[in-house]
């Protein structure tokens, strides 16, 4: 109870402090440079001043936060990648040399590539199939809502859910994990799935696919509804069957949206961390870059140089998408 009160209090103070900044700074501006009940030339001058200052009052906190939390760290990470463990002595390209000779990095990189190929493809594929089919049936919205649900579940919660499914009991004990129970039901041999090399990567990926398919489905479903019905009716009149209509008429028209879904999931996959940490912590050949980076950050007091190098690898993989996004927005802005 006491904890609840103090938590409540600190929340209110935090939020009020933020609101107070905006209110007070704007009030101060209007008091210092009033635009009412003054001679016309002073009013004109004051309006000019307030119009120049006010945008920065509005955008200032956001700019400071963005700079401190995103822009400065990017630059600092690059600097740290040339420094040693504690981030003090200059070591040149040592960290990069370590990176390319490290077996664990090679393995993480390979696994990340596997994640990048499998997860966006599978999520988009299932999302597209489900979006198409649910649009045709009367209980489609309920189905969509249920498939979308895992989106709300945390990665760590999802990991517990799936760890329970992959659970393994040795000996003659009854299997309480669903997967092994099914395997046993069909006469197979139960296994500790998350320790089986290579395939365990896929078992971890299934968790993310389970979460992300709903996202792909929602967006693709909206895009499919945006397809002009004349194009489909014309194809029907020309005698096209459902499969042809799907692949030759519908998919090409929503290609742009498919790309957006794909890249969004790709960015997410590059940062996948919680699932690997909770399921295997990188053992049995399942290490990925984000978890390796976290590992170096804290292992044995932390090696900031090596951690920063791994972070930079993730960043470099994102840059193509970033450039593409910025170009896109610039094009849109010019159109205005």
């Amino acid at each position: 109870m006491e904890q609840l009160v103090s938590a409540l209090l600190i929340m209110i103070i935090g939020v009020l402090a933020c609101a107070a900044y905006f209110y007070a700074s704007n009030w101060l501006l209007d008091v210092l440079f009033p635009s009412k009940n003054k001679p016309a030339d002073i009013v004109a001058k004051n309006i000019h001043i307030t119009n120049t200052v006010r945008p920065w009052l509005f955008i200032g906190p956001a700019l400071i936060a963005l700079t401190f939390y995103l822009i400065y760290p990017v630059i600092e990470s690059i600097r740290l990648s040339f420094l040693g463990r504690a981030g003090e002595e200059f070591v040149g390209f040592d960290n990069y040399a370590w990176l390319f000779s490290s077996d664990t990095f090679y393995q993480s990189f390979k696994n990340n590539m596997l994640w990048l190929i499998v997860v966006p493809t599978a999520s988009t594929f299932f999302g597209l199939i489900i979006a198409t089919m649910t649009d045709k049936i009367w209980w489609g919205n309920i189905a969509k809502s249920l498939i979308f649900m895992p989106m709300a579940i945390s990665f760590i919660g999802a990991s517990v859910i799936w760890k329970f499914i992959y659970d393994f009991r040795s000996g003659d004990d009854a299997q309480i994990g669903l997967l092994n129970a099914i395997v046993v039901f069909f006469g197979g041999e139960p296994q500790a799935w998350i320790t089986v090399p290579f395939w365990n990567n896929l078992f971890l990926m299934i968790i993310l696919i389970w979460i992300q398919t709903g996202f792909a489905m929602v967006i693709l479903s909206a895009a499919l509804r945006g397809i002009p019905s004349e194009t489909i009716e014309a194809a029907v009149l020309d005698g096209a069957n459902s499969i042809q209509i799907f692949f030759k008429i519908m998919v090409p028209q929503i290609w742009g949206t498919i790309a957006v879904v794909w890249t969004t999931i790709t960015i997410l996959v590059l940062k996948v961390f919680d699932i690997v940490l909770a399921m295997t912590n990188g053992q049995w050949g399942t290490q990925v870059l984000a978890n390796e980076m976290f590992d170096w950050m804290f292992r044995g007091g932390g090696d900031f140089g090596r951690g920063a190098v791994v972070a930079i690898v993730i960043m470099v993989l994102v840059i193509p998408i970033m450039v593409w996004n910025i170009k896109d927005v610039n094009k849109e802005m010019e159109g205005r």
Binding site: I59, L63, L66, Y69, L70, I71, Y72, P73, V74, E76, S77, L80, G87, I267, L270, K271, L289, A290, M293, F294, M297, F304, G307, A308, V310, A311, I312, I314, M315, V318, I321, M322, N325, I326, V329, N330, M333
Partner: peptide
Amino acid sequence: RALIIAAVVGLLVVPLQMSLIPLLK
């Protein structure tokens, strides 16, 4: 203004991992 908008769009995809070590320090 245009520069800030472009920066915001660029920052949309910056991985969190880049920020952790510098911010921790």
